[in-house]
């Protein structure tokens, strides 16, 4: 019994982090209708930046989050304005392949700079753990989960209450109508991209704290984001959270009860089945474009 509860608890912790890693992907898809296959790379850039800065300055990796987010915000804005904007209005396959090309190039650059080996960020409290009612929690994982929940909440508030959030939501609902009301759509697209790049970077730091990472992982994080978004629905932090938690639980349950090499199988089966049965996601807004 306690094994089941422990597995579920591990799944929830992992799921919170999946949610943070996917929320930017979801936002870009919801607003720009671009499938950003370089999302995983943005996540990894965050992880490597945190690795470098926390080693150089000797600070806790989670404290580098604001700085890394600022850097990726700028990079994301430029990336969208310079490259993606040129492909946004073409076929969806075109923009998808464009981001894939960028992902390949950046992955290659990462291999040159950081070597293809596994790296990990080890904070001072790496091996501490505590237990509540017989269930063990690692201090690292819990702090990572807390960080990702706080960030998700911030994003939700930003989208709901700030002027920027209102403009982003308006553009997502009706691009043309937003444009008629005086919204500079290109600017909003770029800001949306910048926000989601920043959150991808933050997710990278959180991931780097709990898991080892290497340049080849980018595809995994992109696919994870895709599955989370298909599960939860597009464009909202709540959908990403639901999808992330579900994916986390499914992954740990299969690893525990079917076999450690099977989470990928169940993840992709889940992806294919959900696309077929419920393309709107469980919370059911967008993705109607899949039919």
């Amino acid at each position: 019994m306690s094994l089941v509860v422990q597995t579920l608890a591990d799944g929830l912790v992992l799921g919170g982090i999946y949610a943070l890693a996917a929320v930017g992907f979801s936002l870009i898809f919801g607003v720009l209708h671009v499938i950003n296959l370089s999302h995983g790379i943005l996540v990894l850039i965050g992880a490597y930046l945190a690795l470098v800065t926390s080693q150089a300055l000797g600070v806790d990796p989670l404290l580098t989050i604001p700085a890394v987010m600022a850097v990726l915000f700028g990079a994301g804005y430029a990336y969208q304005r310079l490259l993606i904007q040129r492909a946004v209005d073409r076929s969806p396959l075109g923009s998808m392949l464009l981001t894939f090309g960028v992902a390949l190039m950046l992955q290659n650059i990462m291999i040159w700079v950081f070597s293809p080996d596994m790296k990990s960020i080890t904070p001072s409290y790496a091996f501490a753990s505590f237990s509540v009612a017989g269930i063990t929690f690692d201090a690292v994982r819990v702090s990572a989960l807390a960080a990702s929940l706080v960030l998700l909440l911030c994003l939700a508030l930003l989208l709901k209450f700030s002027p920027l959030g209102r403009v982003i939501r308006a553009t997502a609902q009706q691009t043309l109508a937003a444009q008629l009301c005086g919204v500079n759509v290109k600017h909003v697209y770029a800001l949306t991209f910048a926000v989601s790049a920043a959150f991808a970077g933050a997710a990278g730091i959180v991931i780097g704290v709990i898991l080892p990472f290497s340049p080849a992982d980018e595809a995994l994080w992109t696919m994870n984001a895709f599955v989370v978004v298909v599960l939860g629905g597009v464009g909202s932090p709540a959908g990403a959270l639901l999808g992330g938690l579900l994916l986390g639980i499914v992954n740990t349950l299969t690893a525990q009860y079917v076999g450690p090499s099977f989470p990928n199988v169940t993840m992709f089966l889940l992806l294919v089945l959900l696309l077929l049965v419920r393309p709107n996601g469980l919370l059911g807004n967008a993705f109607s474009a899949s039919r």
């Binding site: 499938i35 969806p92 396959l93 998808m96 696309l275 993705f287 474009a289 899949s290 039919r291």
Partner: peptide, 8 residues
């Protein structure tokens, strides 16, 4: 499924 959804 259509478009990119078929691809993925």
């Amino acid at each position: 499924l259509r478009g990119t959804f078929f691809s993925i």
